[in-house]
Design a protein around this nucleic acid. Structure first.
Lengths: 355, 355
DNA sequence: CTGTTAGCGCTTTCAA
DNA sequence: TTGAAAGCGCTAACAG
């Protein structure tokens, strides 16, 4: 079948320049020395014919597709969108394209990743719901790979982790400093590793600080989920709410506003991830996140050496990003502690974009 | 060079099953009839070896990559993200992958689209800033193509348009019904075709309704842009503000809240696009958008027939989506008209997710 | 119904 | 330094 792709082939350039295809290839890839005159002639013809090498064909002989796949669970989550964006930009500057694969269900994650890898040189894997054992197997299959947002046992696979525990700890410290003693965690998806880790941290905090009450209710990962739990949150009587992520916090804030609940007067709410949106929430969200060091860019920096290495790769690296606290206006002194003087007046500017 | 890709080749499967590669290919693609016994044998071996065809190699002989590119100006905009998401899903169900290409600057749009096309069977093009003349040239180069969010002259290229004019008209009607006479448009990017079209509609409305004042101030397409124009919006004295899109409206709302401006009491604000977020704004945003008929899915439905058609394609289709009004809580009676009785008490439920 | 053959466009040995 | 030739993995003519 004829190729549907546009543009001339290397053969036509060769013919036009009166040389062999091999020479054209050499000129254009510039790995060996070529006669300057020939080189100029070839380049001129290539330019004139608007020649662009067919990357697919090149792959077949080099074994490199010049694309990587990003496997993510949910394209609707700004958190992953920002990964996609920064990964795309980083990859592009190295001449790589990014293929997006959305694994909408937990079961699909492995299969999607495998399929994706067949068309790509590597995969950036965000698989929050695949269980550890399967993940290990998957990883060896699709390598080179960098795994995002998962704590891995195997030190041989590159990963970009986020220290969820540190994030949760900062949020709890922030809330307790404001006098909150009765905390409520609006949980993420049951199978989510990020959720598990946050929950574990919360439990250990609760264990070591008996003065605190830390309860959990089921939630989700979307704005709608946050919206839907608002009544339950209110009914709990807790004064400090830790939402699974910014989206959930968002939905919660919106619904609380509808219910005429004063945030942070009656209730303090925190998010997680630090997506851009959180600054523009009303009230601006107190959250934790990475602003500068974007996950996607870090992922690329770990992936690139693996792509370059022809034979065995060098030592694989790991990044553990520690989110930092971003204080918004959605948290304030606990209602009971309001009158007392030791409630710090910590909350920053009411201007959500002042940061 | 050896292929870095994992998995066995068709040759190994053929060898294992004791048949020729052609037979394996036939069995697996099922285009011709094959001896059932042989078929079973081949399938068993393929399964055992975990064989998956190399799509890149397949492309070289079929001329089809089974991927399409989405060229968009900004991965950070939820509007485009939703296009990406629905396109990805639609394409996936047809066995196609989606390659993302972000054209961050106006100048890059054409080049990015061309490059993308070289690795794909088709491109979905969102190029709001490329001027008409160039766009025409580009389109013929990268066909098959479907163009989004642009009104095209050439009836031969598929397009999914949004009737921005109808959207703007609905918003203006809504505001004027509420008694607003002094309107302010926070403009989008100067070169944006969507902006131009909205502006043109506003101008024609202003011309035909002399009782209205319709002014324009520069804005942008981001939350930050909306945030930054808040003071200027206030200073204008207008009572109804039409933001270029939901993001801008969002940023504006956040800043207005910080400035203790009552929305919609003092000022009514509308967005554009109807992104999911708009429902969760505080107050919930009055906007226009397509909820069900997602642009990406529609784009795919126009693209697919072009991909299937081996020879000349059938008649190309065009879709023009008419956004519908989504009334939130960010619009209300104009301050001056407040006392009067004929201000309709139209605003819907304060519950942002009630819709 | 099956095997053989040719070739997609490119890179890369191997000789000259 | 250059050209000829082989081959990446697959599909699709054409014979058998």
């Amino acid at each position: 079948m004829a190729r549907s792709n546009v543009g001339p082939t290397i053969t036509e350039v060769a013919k036009a320049a009166g040389v062999s295809r091999a020479t054209v290839s050499r000129v254009l890839n510039g790995r060996t020395t070529v006669d300057p005159a020939i080189g100029a002639r070839v380049r001129a013809q290539a330019e004139r014919l608007q020649y662009r090498p067919n990357l697919t064909a090149r792959y077949l002989s080099t074994g490199r597709t010049m694309t990587v796949s990003l496997v993510i669970p949910d394209l609707g989550n700004p958190m992953f969108q920002s990964v996609l964006r920064s990964l795309t930009r980083a990859a592009e500057s190295a001449g790589y394209g990014v293929l997006v694969a959305e694994a909408q269900s937990a079961e699909k994650e492995a299969r999607i990743a495998q399929d994706a890898r067949r068309q790509c040189d590597a995969v950036v894997l965000v698989a929050p719901r695949t269980v550890d054992a399967e993940l290990d197997a998957l990883i060896t299959q699709v390598a080179p790979v960098v795994v995002l947002n998962r704590r891995l046992k195997d030190p041989h696979v590159a990963s970009v982790g986020i220290d969820y525990g540190a994030g949760v700890t900062q949020l709890v410290d922030h809330l307790t400093a404001l006098g909150h003693r009765d905390l409520l965690y609006v949980a993420g998806p049951e199978r989510s590793a990020a959720h598990q880790e946050r929950l574990a941290t919360l439990n250990s905090i609760a264990a070591s600080r008996p003065e605190l009450s830390v309860r959990t209710i089921p939630g989700g990962a979307s704005m709608a989920a946050g919206h839907d739990v608002a009544e339950e949150v209110l009914a709990s009587g807790a004064t400090g709410v830790l939402a699974f992520n910014d989206l959930v916090a968002f939905g919660l804030l919106a619904r609380l506003h509808g219910l005429s609940v004063d945030v942070p007067g009656d209730l303090s709410v925190t998010g997680f991830d630090g997506i851009e949106l959180s600054r523009f929430a009303v009230p601006a969200l107190t959250t934790v996140g990475q602003e500068v060091l974007d996950t996607g860019a870090v992922a690329w920096s770990l992936l690139e050496p693996q792509l370059a290495a022809t034979g065995k790769a060098g030592p694989v690296e790991h990044a553990l990003l520690t989110p930092r606290l971003i204080v918004g206006d959605s948290t304030g002194p606990a209602p009971a502690a309001r009158a007392s003087a030791h409630a710090p007046a910590a909350d920053a500017a009411p201007d959500p974009a002042a940061r």
